[in-house]
Design a protein around this nucleic acid. Structure first.
Length: 204
DNA sequence: CACCCGATTATCT
DNA sequence: GATAATCGGGTGT
């Protein structure tokens, strides 16, 4: 399967957020080893037209990647603990749009992810935006990375997977909380569920 | 330069 | 359901 090119990302974020479900995320480390997973959850952020977006109030040092070319990674640090991975989408329908990758289903490098996440529970490895960045060793040093080349440390591959997609409001935001801009695999056990107890598996 | 709080997670009750 | 952990971006003084 081939690396997704810029034209994939250079569309409106709602389209990309839906279409990115089922694609494979591949992280190549400095030693050449690979970690990968199938994207099962993503959200659209429409830049300067979206009150929930970091880019809503204009360009700052943190969000400037969002104002650049589609197909680059926007990685930010939040809550003093976590990194989140976004992919910049088209600027033709409003400036600075991006898609937040919220969860993947681990495919390869699972043993290494377990070490980094300090758990043996496979469903806990990458079922959340902060979790997957920890598992995939993604931090701000990768902010701005062009993800459209074969040798990029982060890239996406096309797949032939057919995924049943569900739609909902976005998670963890207060502004524009009613917009149905979250897309996820209807059947995947790897979709983020922050209200689910990690050890008991019970919903609270 | 002080203050507030966040596109989260783990752990406790 | 609630909260601690812990950093730094963004805003306003």
């Amino acid at each position: 399967m081939k690396t997704l090119e810029r034209s994939f990302y250079d569309r409106r974020p709602l389209i990309v957020a839906r279409d990115i479900i089922g694609k494979k995320l591949i992280r190549t480390l400095n030693d050449g080893s690979e970690l990968s997973g199938i994207i099962v959850e993503a959200e659209a952020y429409e830049g300067n037209k979206d009150p929930a977006s970091h880019a809503f109030r204009g360009k700052t040092p943190r969000n400037e990647v969002m104002f650049g070319e589609a197909g680059h990674a926007y990685v930010y640090f939040t809550y003093g603990f976590h990194h989140c991975l976004n992919l910049v989408t088209s600027s033709r329908f409003g400036k600075a749009s991006a898609v937040l990758i919220r969860a993947v289903e681990p495919v390869s490098g699972i043993e290494e992810m377990k070490v980094r996440r300090k758990t043996n529970s496979v469903t806990q490895l990458t079922s959340g935006p902060g979790k997957l960045c920890q598992a995939f060793l993604i931090d701000r040093s990768l902010n701005g990375t062009d993800v459209t080349t074969m040798d990029s440390p982060i890239r996406l591959e096309d797949t032939s997977l057919k995924v049943r997609i569900a739609i909902s409001t976005r998670i963890g935001i207060k502004q524009a909380a009613d917009r149905m801009w979250r897309f996820y695999s209807k059947t995947s056990p790897y979709v983020s569920k922050s209200h689910v107890n990690a050890t008991t598996g019970r919903e609270s």
